[in-house]
Amino acid sequence: MNIFRLAGDMTHLFSVLVLLLKIHTIKSCAGISLKTQELYAIVFTTRYLDLFTTYISLYNTIMKLIFLGSSISIVWYMRHHKVVRRSYDKDQDTFRHYLLMLPCLLLALLINEKFTFLEVMWAFSLYLEAVAILPQLVLLQRTRNIDNLTGQYVLLLGAYRALYVLNWIYRYFTEENYVHWITWVSGIVQTLLYADFFYYYFQSWKNNVKLQLPA
């Protein structure tokens, strides 16, 4: 495992921790899109079906279980916890996320590495992950005040994606037969979706003003 991959996994882990911190200690999910969180829960459930079929490493298994468990518990908290759910911006979080799932499924049926159930689900999870952040970005744009933890959460997620792109470049040049078009294209699309947010985040950081996205 190279440094970019490890750093990518760690920023992903931190992003989840930041979100759990917000939910557990502040008992708030204000500014967090339940739609995006539901999509992530589906992404990890469909991608990590290979937990039952393939053993890669202890690290791999533990990380998969963490991402599965945390994404499902975040959805549970936002929907059912009696305090946390009251802070959910339901009226602002109106992105029709289920409409993203059908095109991703069709694409996965058409473009996959092998036409088997696990491979189609794996491709589906990659396509869906690429667009899963959209409801969150729309919600950020609508929310007047973006609090620090929410901003950091999205920043860490974006950093995780960018580091994965560096990891692929590194692996391409150092490993033989390392070519994965499906992962790369959907991963690059996903990273580009963060570009706009990055721009405004660093502007606000540089000028030392509160993060606000233009309407």
């Binding site: 991959r5 996994d9 290979d50 890669i56 791999n60 590495e113 092998k114 490993e175 037969n177 992962t183």
Partner: peptide, 10 residues
């Protein structure tokens, strides 16, 4: 094997 390589990522 080729199939395995992508699956070692999260």
């Amino acid at each position: 094997p080729k199939d395995q390589a992508a699956k070692d990522e999260l």
